[in-house]
C-alpha cells in the first residue's frame, strides 16, 4: 500500500528508528511499511497518522485497495 510516511518523516526530521520508537514498533517494520512491503494494522496505522496530526486516509493511499 502506498503511503506518505517517508515524506512526512523527512519533513519532521525523524529517522525511521525515531518514528518506530514513538509509535511502538521496530525500524524494520517502518521500512517495510514505507516501501509498501508490509501493510500496517489499523492500530499502527492510526498511531502513525495520529503522530503526524493527520487522518489515516491522509497518510495511506487506499485507492489501490478499492480497485482490487
Amino acid at each position: 500500500m502506498n503511503n506518505r510516511i517517508r515524506e512526512l518523516r523527512k519533513a519532521n526530521r525523524l529517522s525511521q528508528g525515531d518514528l518506530a520508537d514513538i509509535v511502538g514498533t521496530t525500524r524494520q517494520t517502518i521500512t517495510s511499511i514505507e516501501v509498501g512491503k508490509y501493510t500496517a494494522s489499523l492500530v499502527l496505522a492510526y498511531k502513525i497518522a495520529h503522530y503526524f496530526g493527520l487522518t489515516i486516509e491522509e497518510v495511506f493511499d487506499f485507492e489501490s485497495i478499492t480497485e482490487e
Binding site: 511502538g24 521496530t26 500496517a40
Partner: peptide, 16 residues
C-alpha cells in the same frame, strides 16, 4: 529508557 523502549517494541512488534 531508549534501550528499554527499543527492546519492548522489538518484543511486541506486530510484523515480527
Amino acid at each position: 529508557e531508549k534501550l528499554l523502549t527499543r527492546l519492548y517494541n522489538k518484543l511486541n512488534d506486530e510484523r515480527e
